[in-house]
Every structure is written in C-alpha cells, then in structure tokens.
Computed example of a mutant assay.
Amino acid sequence: MPAEDSPIAANVAETTLWSGHTSQWVHFWYYFFCILLAAGIGVAATVFGLATAGIGALGYLALIIPLLMWMIRWWVTKSTKYELTTQRLRITAGILDRKVDELELFRVRDYSMEQPLLLRMVGLGNLTLITSDATTPTVAMKAIHGVEGVREKLRTAVQNERDRKRVRQMDVDNVVDGGADLK
C-alpha cells in the first residue's frame, strides 16, 4: 500500500525559545544628556540661590524635569518585550495602551545582525528581520542580549517552521536582457 503524504500537524506544541527586551544601553546618550541637564540645573539653582539669599532654592524643583525624562524613557524601553517561539515572534509594546504584534516565522525572508562598538562592548547587538508580512515588513530588535544566540535560534526556528508548513521562498532575479544569455 503506497504511503500518503502526512498531513500538516495542526496542533504542534508551541514553546518559547527566547524572550527579552531592548537594553537601556541603547539610550546611553539620552541618559548622559539627562545627567548633564540635572547638573546644569543644580549649579544654576545653587548660584542663583546664593545670589538671592535662599529664594533661588526653589530652582532645585526643576531637577524633576530630567528625572521625569529619564524615568519615562526607561519605562517605555522596559515595556517593549520580544518573545521568540517555535512558530512566531511576538512583540509586546506600550505603557498605557498595549500593542501586540505577531510575526509568523515562515514569513521571515532575511535577517541581519549588527553590533556597533558601544553595544558590542557590553555584549549587545541589533537584529533586523525582513519579512513578507503586510503589516510589519521590517522588524528591528535593538540592543538585545546574546544577539548571536538569538540569531541562531531564529534561523533554526524559521527553517523548522517552513518545513512544518511546507513553505518555500522563491528568489527571482530581474532579467534585463530577456534571458538572452541563456543558451
């Protein structure tokens, strides 16, 4: 009796391969600016306070501005979470309004890893995905820990998911001369 093609397993268990979030190192220069701003406010409040016999001490209240700037940026970055499973990449973002974006792994066409000097010094990197998804054609995961390991897990999961779904990507080059070189 001939063997038939096995049907696609619809209820394959989905497991988490990696989860993480963007590191705060990606905002190094922003945080550095906040520190400089706080130092400037502190110096100005001190000088103005000495010149006005203590009335300028209210200027220290302006230190709330760089503190709030720092806290909001930290919170926004911390609230963005990436979760790589065996079937999809789930991106959850937002502080008050939550947005969940899911990318099926068989739609990933290409990926690239980048490690700028500052990020490489602290063991981080950027991973960019080019996809065939209509809503998210490009996904950029900035300053993630262990980017090389994540890239390898992603590569393996994409190939496994394509095999499971029996999906193949066809690359077609632009032929300018109408194929005249083919003989």
Score class of each variant (00 low, 15 high):
Glu83Met: 14
Leu67Asn: 12
Asp101Thr: 14
Ile91Trp: 01
Thr80His: 08
Thr86Gly: 06
Ser79Gly: 04
Asp101Pro: 04
Tyr111Asp: 02
Ser79Met: 12
Asp101Asn: 15
Val108Lys: 03
Ser112Ala: 08
Val100Asn: 09
Val100Ala: 08
Tyr82Asn: 13
Val76Asn: 08
Gln87Ser: 05
Leu96Ala: 06
Lys78Trp: 14
Ile91Val: 10
Asp110Gly: 00
Thr80Val: 14
Gln87Val: 07
Arg88Ser: 05
Val100Phe: 11
Leu105Asn: 01
Ser112Met: 03
Trp74Phe: 12
Tyr111Asn: 05
Arg90Gly: 07
Leu103Cys: 03
Leu84Lys: 13
Arg90Lys: 14
Leu103Ala: 04
Leu89Asp: 11
Leu105Asp: 01
Gln87Lys: 10
Trp70Lys: 08
Ala93Gly: 10
Arg73Leu: 09
Gln87Asn: 07
Arg107Asp: 00
Leu84Ala: 13
Leu96Ser: 06
Arg73His: 09
Lys99Glu: 14
Glu102Asn: 09
Lys81Leu: 13
Arg107Gln: 00
Val108Thr: 01
Trp70Met: 14
Thr86Leu: 03
Arg107Leu: 05
Thr77Met: 13
Leu68Pro: 04
Leu67Trp: 13
Arg88Val: 01
Arg88Leu: 01
Arg88Asp: 02
Phe106Glu: 02
Tyr82Pro: 02
Ile95Pro: 02
Arg109Gln: 13
Met69Ser: 08
Leu89Pro: 12
Trp74Ser: 09
Thr80Tyr: 10
Glu102Val: 10
Leu68Cys: 07
Thr80Asn: 09
Leu96Val: 07
Val76Ser: 09
Trp74Ile: 06
Arg107Pro: 00
Lys78Asp: 15
Glu104His: 05
Tyr82Asp: 08
Leu103Ser: 02
Arg109Lys: 11
Trp75Asp: 03
Met71Cys: 11
Thr80Gly: 11
Asp101Met: 15
Arg90Tyr: 04
Met71Gln: 08
Leu89Trp: 10
Leu105Val: 01
Met71Phe: 12
Leu84Asp: 13
Tyr111Ala: 05
Thr92Leu: 14
Arg98Asn: 02
Asp110Arg: 00
Asp97Gln: 12
Thr86His: 05
Arg88Lys: 08
Leu89Phe: 09
Ala93Tyr: 08
Arg109His: 03
Arg88Gly: 01
Thr92Lys: 15
Thr85Gly: 06
Leu96Asp: 02
Phe106Leu: 02
Ile91Glu: 02
Leu84Gly: 10
Gly94Met: 09
Glu102Lys: 04
Gln87Leu: 06
Val100Gly: 08
Arg88Ala: 07
Arg107Ala: 00
Leu67Ser: 15
Glu102Gln: 13
Arg98Leu: 09
Gly94Arg: 12
Thr85Gln: 06
Ser112His: 05
Leu96Thr: 04
Arg107Ile: 00
Leu103Phe: 04
Thr92His: 13
Glu104Thr: 04
Trp75Asn: 02
Glu102Thr: 11
Thr86Val: 05
Leu89Gln: 09
Met69Ala: 11
Val108Gly: 01
Asp101Tyr: 14
Glu83Trp: 05
Ala93Leu: 08
